[in-house]
Design a protein around this nucleic acid. Structure first.
Length: 916
RNA sequence: GCCGGAAUGGUGGAAUGGUAGACACGAAGGACUUAAAAUCCUUUGGCCAUCGCGGCUGUGCGGGUUCGAGUCCCGCUUCCGGUACCA
């Protein structure tokens, strides 16, 4: 009987659906295990072979855990709001919901063909009202909370209001946009609108003024990568920096907890490090500087308070609110023209063009320690969004300040003994202080501590921790996203009552912005509350829907709660999360934030959402080339191309096999090549190759369907794992796929006989049992350690060792072991071998170490590190016994030649080294 | 610039400090076939060899630790990711 993978795979995929094999319910009697894939955005291009890599790995773990007796939650869904569907809608008029549904259907079809064990009853789609109800709900909860630094958690905003009524801001220690100060009486005197405005300063979702790239012609905010040289990429319209009122998420409130939480989760060091850098904790000092001949004071942040004696100028960010205050009339014109120039520059240009620019404000600050007057400059190398948007510049010990000082000819005062600042600054935090008054003679590290102390004692400032992590801008001027559950009254936003959720995305006549420059929702009819209040026109960004989806899978049909307490208590958190590193500073920060917020409010029982995270590597494309001889339609094979002058041309990898071109398919591929001639080597046309990004234009996109069609899903699954370590990036290269396909065929042929199967009931030999149990042991270890490539090899080794063995006693457990990797063939063989039910419900075999025990071990005998011969010893021989026997050995004596060995080393790894 | 990760045959890749190159692809040779496909067997890092004895050499480069280093330490080179005026 042939291994007809098409029939087998189709049969079992239908059977699994019919039997509900992968349906999961909470079962308190079984230990749980939650395996999650990062859900995909269903793009129009469908899946390529890179996508399933992580899905296959997680599927293997899910099936493995299930065979081990765990109750495994392994769901899948779609991140189905997003820009591409909307862009497509603008171009074609096709409703994004329609394209999205179509793409999802295509994804599902592709996923089904690979044989995943998802419980599709738990599918979620972020664009469905039943789902985004809970995204909106979470937004409301955040709006109604503030962050209490004392309690170190989010608390209801009502508590804050109560506090304001009692004692105003006195003794307040909370997260806010701006430090405010008012009394209880002042609070009560505020109008409703003023109170609401004040609370905005504390809410976890708030309307905040943010600088964005605004394109008036397109009527939308653009991301930095959508802007180049001050023009929009799409259309080439001018873009300006604009302060806009946007919804923001106070992610920064959780900065320290996001940092601390990393200690308790099992993620790769590199990913944790990326998050640490992104959060960017920095301990320093905030210092007050008085402005000369004025009452104005301002605050700067520095990590090098020790260099205070070397400050030769101050710098303000152009957007700083101090700029208008400190600009003197004499400098007004110059400052205005500088600010104008800066305003036109985008973030991107600012990054690309590092030329030193700046302007003198006309004012002087007073060094709080020396009393010296120091000029205050304005420059865009200081960022408004970090620290206080103002710095003290110490050119001798900061390279940026140094460049600025050199350019504008400002003084440079070295503060560390022996440092040379004639060519560049000395940025290292080491050495002995000089020119620094009371700090002289201290090391830099001592000086930092001493200055902190001094500044605090003399009330010149305070010790402060800053984070690089910014609040997330949460508004998009887009159609295809979650509507905000927000209406406006008297210009102030209010949350819809939860009973009105979900607030469904309305139909619009046009997906473009309105003529008035409003977001697309401005086209919606009756976009207001029943009371007539206008609803928010912005929609939420892509990461909104993906921030809590893992919780929804626990209880996907619940319309009373995001997740019931019972379901959450049972599933707790994701045990294994598999996905790409590209989400390190986006989704993986936001969902940790979101989860911690829900944890604070008691809606979830775990502080961290993802216990263990594994990043699968990217699958790159492997492009193939043909070489056309210049000015001809003749193509020369790779090995001979150097004899001609040729042009390399990308050729569709799907008509190339093992780097050999299918010439007929090539002629048919493009009319241009219909009459092509070929210069072959060994009767074949060999193509060149290169590793490139997988993309249509390189003709190197391989989709899983074509592989499944040709080799079957089981082969695809095995091969993707066999390709190399899961976490490594590697090119998709089908050159080795025959190997794993052959492995499956060999296994099949072992038990296939005539029209049926033949399993032998003969007792297994010791050698066969040893092979099997070696495999059990290695596989268990490999799957637990995500070493899937060596796991696949282990099967091949085992099969090689077993030879022609078709004994049920050996093959049946082997089928169970293979099930996570190649479930379809295993179901078929399991049934053929007389196994009960589905192999998915079988039991993972346990390694019996007794079969692995060796009676004797072969030792390599080396002299001065060179292996000369081998000897056999009983397993339990002691080092002393081995040493004595080796030295007495006749052959050894030949090498020793009467000398006394200086040292004899017996290594448990079966090596004896004799040093002469 | 800073932070990660990597470098092993023709190729993908194995190797708790212990026989480097498992496993697989490719290639070469052979068996079975009229033939091809499929399948099976043998060889396969390089160099030398009186090719079935054996020898030398070999994990990006230069040092070091060790009886012993692909693996650990120090110093480089190259490549790939991430991040970037964060004071």
């Amino acid at each position: 009987m042939e291994y007809d993978f098409r029939a087998i795979e189709q049969k079992w995929q239908q059977e699994w659906v019919r039997r509900g094999t992968y349906k999961v319910t909470e079962d308190p009697d079984k230990p749980k295990y939650y395996v999650l894939d990062m859900f995909p955005y269903p793009s129009g291009a469908g899946l390529h072979v890179g996508h399933p890599l992580g899905y296959i790995a997680s599927d293997i773990v899910s099936r493995f855990k299930r065979l081990q007796g765990y109750n495994v939650l392994h769901p899948m869904g779609y991140d189905s709001y997003g820009l591409p569907a909307e862009q497509y809608a603008i171009q074609t008029g096709q409703h994004p919901a329609v394209t999205t549904a179509k793409n999802i259907a295509r994804y599902r079809e592709q996923l089904d063909k690979i044989g995943f064990c998802y419980d599709w009853d738990r599918e979620v789609r972020t664009c469905e009202p039943g789902y985004y109800k809970w995204t909106q709900w979470a937004f409301i909860q955040m709006f109604n909370c503030y962050y209490d630094n004392q309690a170190d958690k989010a608390r209801p905003i009502a508590d804050l209001v109560a506090r304001f009524e009692k004692q105003g801001t006195e003794g307040l220690n909370v997260c806010c946009t701006e430090e405010l100060s008012f009394t209880a009486a002042e609070w009560k005197a505020k109008t409703e609108k003023q109170q609401q405005e004040t609370l905005m300063n504390y809410r976890l979702t708030y309307l905040g003024d943010t600088i964005v790239n605004w394109c008036p012609k397109l009527g939308t905010v653009l991301a930095n990568d959508e802007v180049s040289e001050g023009l929009s990429i799409r259309g080439g319209y001018p873009v300006e920096q604009k302060l806009m009122r946007q919804w923001c998420l106070r992610v920064s409130a959780y900065a320290q907890r996001l940092l601390d939480g990393l200690e308790r989760i099992d993620w790769s060091d590199s990913l944790k490090e990326t998050q640490r850098n992104w959060i960017g904790r920095s301990e320093g000092t905030e210092m007050q500087f008085k402005v000369k001949d004025s009452d104005v004071e301002f605050t700067i942040f520095t990590t090098r308070a020790d260099t205070i004696f070397g400050v030769t100028f101050m710098v303000l960010a152009p957007e700083s609110e101090l700029v208008p205050v400190l600009t003197t009339p004499a400098q007004q014109a110059e400052v205005d023209s500088y600010l104008d120039a800066v305003k036109k520059r985008t973030e991107r240009e600012r990054q690309a063009d590092r030329r030193v620019t700046g302007v003198f404000s006309g004012s002087y600050a007073v060094n709080p320690l020396t009393g010296q007057a120091i000029p205050v400059w304005i420059s865009d190398y200081v960022l408004a969004g970090y620290g206080t948007g103002a710095i003290m510049a110490v050119p001798a010990h900061d390279s940026r300040d140094y460049a600025f000082a050199k350019h504008f000819n400002l003084p440079i005062i070295p503060l560390i003994e022996g440092c040379d600042v004639s060519e560049e600054s000395f940025d290292a935090k080491e050495g002995i202080m000089m020119n620094s008054g009371f700090l002289n003679g201290l090391t830099v590290k001592e000086a930092i501590q001493r200055t902190k102390q001094y500044v605090t004692e003399h009330h010149l400032g305070r010790v402060k921790v800053n984070y690089r992590l910014r609040d997330a801008i949460f508004s998009r001027q887009r159609y295809w996203g979650e509507p905000f559950p927000v209406y406006y009254k008297d210009g102030m936003p209010y949350m819809l009552d939860e009973s009105r959720l979900p607030l469904e995305l309305p139909e619009v006549s046009d997906f473009k912005p309105t003529a008035q420059g409003e977001p697309p929702l401005g086209h919606a009819k009756n976009w207001k509350t029943p009371e007539g209040y206008p609803l928010e026109l912005n929609t939420m960004p892509g990461f909104a829907g993906s921030s809590a989806y893992y919780l929804r899978y626990m209880d996907p049909h619940n319309d009373q709660a995001l997740v019931s307490k019972e379901a959450n208590d049972y599933w707790q958190q994701v045990d294994l999360y598999v996905g790409g590193t590209e989400h390190a500073t986006g989704h993986l920060i936001y969902s940790r934030f979101w989860n911690k917020f829900l944890y604070d409010l008691g809606y979830v029982c775990q502080d961290e959402p993802f216990k263990k995270l594994v990043n699968q590597g990217m699958i790159q494309g492997r492009s193939n080339f043909v070489y056309r001889i210049k000015e001809t339609n003749t193509f020369v094979s790779y090995g001979l191309k150097d004899q001609y002058e040729t042009t390399a041309i990308h050729v569709d990898v799907n008509i190339v096999s093992n780097d050999v071109l299918d010439i007929e398919a090539f002629r048919a591929w493009n009319p241009e090549y219909q009459t092509a001639e070929f210069i072959l080597e060994d009767g074949k046309y060999v193509c060149g190759w290169a590793v490139e990004k997988m993309s249509k234009s390189m003709f190197n996109v391989v989709n899983p369907d074509s592989v499944v069609e040709k080799f079957g899903a089981d082969t695809l699954r095995l091969y993707e794992m066999f390709l190399g370590p899961l976490e490594a990036s590697k090119p998709w290269d089908t050159n080795g796929i025959d190997g794993v396909h052959r492995f499956l065929k060999r296994l099949w042929n072992l038990v296939a006989a005539g029209d049926g199967f033949a399993f032998s009931d003969e007792k297994a030999t010791a050698a066969e049992l040893k092979s099997l149990h070696k495999l059990i042991k290695k596989l268990t270890w490999d799957i637990e350690h995500f070493s899937f490539n060596t796991a696949v090899s282990a099967f091949m080794i085992c099969l090689n060792e077993l030879g022609k063995c078709n004994k049920r006693e050996i093959i049946q457990p082997l089928i169970v072991l293979l099930t996570p990797f190649a479930p379809h063939i295993c179901e078929e063989l399991w049934q053929a071998s007389g196994g009960e039910g589905s192999v998915c419900d079988a039991q993972w075999p346990v390694c019996n170490e007794a079969y692995l025990v060796e009676n004797t071990a072969v030792y390599s005998i080396s002299f001065n590190g060179k292996t000369r011969f081998t000897m056999e010893f009983p397993m339990d021989a002691t080092a002393q016994e081995i040493e004595a026997q080796v030295l007495a050995n006749e052959q050894a004596q030949k090498y020793i030649e009467g000398r006394t060995p200086r040292k004899v080393i017996v290594v448990p790894k079966k090596i004896v080294n004799i040093v002469l």
